[in-house]
Amino acid sequence: MKVGDTHVLEAPEITRSTLALYAGASGDHNPVHIDIDACRAVGIDDVFAHGMLSMAYLAGLLTSWLPQERIRSYGVRFAAITPVHAEPTCSGTVTAIEDGIAYVDLRVTLTDGTDTLVGNAAVSLD
């Protein structure tokens, strides 16, 4: 790894089936993720993805780039919703290297340019 290196992972389309399966796997059955009627009752047009689903895809970016045991820290901030049928792109860019640790800026971006998650990770180079 060197400063400026970038790694990209195209996440699969967020479908209603994806949301239902993730709800079952995670135990997060919040109706805004799986029930369009519940969404409309509170003024939301349609269901949207769990933030933690996007965070999991972003973690998948990291572990497809380097071994999991090299990750020293990983954190994100939820910036926008990921609507059903979105096709998120996960990316990471090395911004600094110091004392054997690479610092990586992370983001999940929709095709319209909206960043839904932004974060960072620190990874050991050894």
Rank of each mutant, 00 (worst) to 15 (best):
N120P: 01
G4S: 10
N120H: 14
V47Q: 03
I97K: 03
K2N: 13
G43W: 08
L117N: 12
Y74D: 06
W65G: 05
M1Y: 08
V76W: 06
T89P: 00
T82I: 06
T116V: 02
A79T: 15
P83I: 01
I36W: 09
P31F: 01
L21E: 15
T93V: 12
Y22S: 06
D126S: 10
M52E: 02
V47S: 04
A122Q: 15
G119P: 03
G92E: 10
L106F: 08
I97F: 09
A41D: 11
Y22D: 05
G24L: 04
A96E: 14
D105C: 02
P31I: 04
L125A: 05
S124A: 13
I14L: 01
M1R: 00
S64E: 13
T18V: 14
A38K: 01
L58D: 07
L106M: 10
T18W: 14
A79Y: 08
A41N: 07
G27D: 07
L61P: 02
A11G: 13
K2E: 15
D112R: 05
G60H: 03
T6D: 10
V32D: 05
G27C: 06
Y103C: 08
E87I: 12
V104F: 10
N30V: 13
A122S: 15
T18A: 13
L21C: 10
Y22I: 05
C39K: 07
T93G: 03
M55N: 13
I44Q: 07
A56M: 04
L58V: 08
Y103Q: 12
